[in-house]
């Protein structure tokens, strides 16, 4: 079975040591996904695997065989923006931009998690449908670090995207 990356079949590498992140960046020239810490601490390498946000740096590419990968390159058509990308521009949700692809992939998955009612650490009651408060968004985005400190814009962009008030 191939790995399906942005809708295209890709053969898994023969060397099982290759991470999904290195496969994307070094072999497929999909350099939108960034390598930050390469140890699961920063979230810059976040991609969607079967629709769930995961860390490509800690995923072995061979493990992705038969699975569906979506990277930042495939969230919108050429010359158009995904609504969350537009929101980041609107809110100044970045400075250097290095963490941005990971933030956006994470934010896209976050909306799906909230829409299906998944609780977070700060959700007051486990049985409640979580509200898209800034506190909720901050907690749910804690796996994506922004060293520039653009967090207020990031949270604002994702909040408006989740609330559908763009």
């Amino acid at each position: 079975m191939p790995i399906i990356i942005n809708g295209h079949d890709v053969a898994a590498p023969a060397d099982p040591r290759v991470s999904l992140l290195d496969l994307l960046r070094e072999r497929l020239d999909l350099t939108g996904t960034k390598k930050g810490c390469n140890q699961g601490a920063c979230g810059a390498c976040t991609v969607l695997i079967d629709g769930q946000r995961k860390l490509s740096c800690l995923s072995l590419a061979v493990q992705c065989d038969g699975h569906d990968i979506t990277t930042i390159e495939a969230i919108s058509e050429v010359d158009s923006l995904h609504p969350l990308q537009a929101a980041f521009i609107e809110t100044d949700g970045f400075q250097c931009g290095y963490c941005t692809p990971g933030q956006i992939m994470s934010g896209i998955a976050l909306r799906g998690e909230m829409q299906r009612g998944a609780p977070s650490h700060v959700t007051p009651r486990l049985e409640d449908v979580p509200e898209a408060s800034n506190e909720e968004i901050r907690e749910r985005m804690s796996g994506n670090i922004c060293r520039c400190g653009a967090n207020n814009g990031i949270i604002e962009a994702i909040s408006s995207y989740v609330r559908g008030t763009l």
């Binding site: 769930q52 946000r53 995961k54 994470s106 998955a109 977070s120 486990l126 796996g143």
Partner: peptide, 19 residues
């Protein structure tokens, strides 16, 4: 077993909990 949900949600990040 709400404490089990709470404990998991208190750990790691959303990406890591998915993996």
């Amino acid at each position: 077993y709400p404490a089990l949900s709470r404990a998991i949600l208190a750990g790691a990040s959303a990406q890591i909990r998915n993996m």
